[in-house]
């Protein structure tokens, strides 16, 4: 599905990713954890194609294609989805109109017929139920005036509608109360399937109580320094990131 090989990226003159290696197979859920400023969100955004980051080393292969060579919209059409940490408010753009344009761009890319308004609405309403999204939000401007929880639910709703192969969740748990967290997690779990993979970027372990990962990776200073199973998340929660950093330091001295 996704193979990241020695990926390096910087923003302006600041090197952030210093050689990321990661292999995600179909159906797997990977969690990336790490302290603030370790490069978690940068990794998510670089994969989605945000142009404020400059990739200055390494490669990323996505379903046999050179991901870094594709425009952001082509990555999306090929099945990569980023749930934003800070979903953007877009006044004047109707949520339903926007999402239909997105779905039809994807369908067109795959040579499928576009959905008309009625077909799309029926389809979208079903998906809205999945994340318990208030249907009136679909008629509002994209994210405008949405609460923090509604914005995150809207991201998962979009994910459900766009049906991606690889979903990257960038700190989707931040700013959510426990009920919203459960709803978001239920939405994600409902979309788990043997041919869909997830990359969950999070600072805290609590989301992983609800979305149980297959692998947990710890990102420190632009590198994955430790990988393990789901129990690694619990260990991190207990001992804190300092533990990994100390362990690293000890390893370096030894």
């Amino acid at each position: 599905m996704l193979t990241i090989d020695n990926l390096q990226a910087k923003v302006e003159d600041k090197q952030i990713l210093r050689g990321i290696n990661l292999q995600i197979n179909p159906g797997e859920i990977h969690a990336i954890m790490g302290p603030n400023g370790s490069g978690k969100s940068t990794l998510a955004n670089v994969l989605a194609g945000r142009d404020m980051y400059e990739v200055n080393g390494g490669s990323v292969e996505f379903n046999g294609q050179d991901l870094l060579d594709l425009d952001p919209e082509v990555r999306a059409r090929e099945g990569l989805f980023l749930a934003f940490q800070y979903p953007v408010e877009i006044p004047g753009v109707n949520n339903t109109y926007f999402l239909r344009a997105a779905v039809n761009a994807v369908r067109k890319h795959h040579g499928e017929p576009e959905l008309d308004g009625a077909q799309f609405l029926k389809f979208a309403r079903e998906k809205a139920k999945l994340v318990e999204l208030d249907p009136t939000l679909m008629n509002r401007s994209v994210n405008e005036g949405f609460s923090g929880g509604e914005k995150k639910r809207n991201e998962i709703f979009q994910m459900a509608v766009l049906n991606p192969k690889l979903a990257i969740l960038d700190e989707t748990d931040s700013g959510l109360d426990i009920d919203a967290l459960r709803i978001v997690a239920n939405g994600v779990n409902a979309l788990r399937s043997p041919d869909r993979s997830f990359l969950i970027v999070t600072h805290y372990q609590r989301l992983l109580d609800y979305i149980v990962p297959d692998f947990v990776h710890v990102l420190v200073d632009g590198r994955i320094v430790k990988s393990g199973g789901k129990e690694l998340a619990l260990e991190l929660e207990e001992k804190g990131y300092a533990w990994v950093e100390e362990e690293l330091l000890a390893g370096a001295i030894a």
């Binding site: 989605a48 194609g49 945000r50 142009d51 404020m52 425009d71 952001p72 919209e73 990555r75 999306a76 059409r77 989805f81 980023l82 934003f84 979903p87 953007v88 877009i90 926007f98 999402l99 344009a101 997105a102 779905v103 761009a105 994807v106 890319h109 994209v142 979009q158 766009l162």
Partner: peptide, 16 residues
Amino acid sequence: PNALFYLQARGIGAEE
């Protein structure tokens, strides 16, 4: 640019 990227990240072409 954030709004543009948001739309592109959902599959909508840059021009559109």
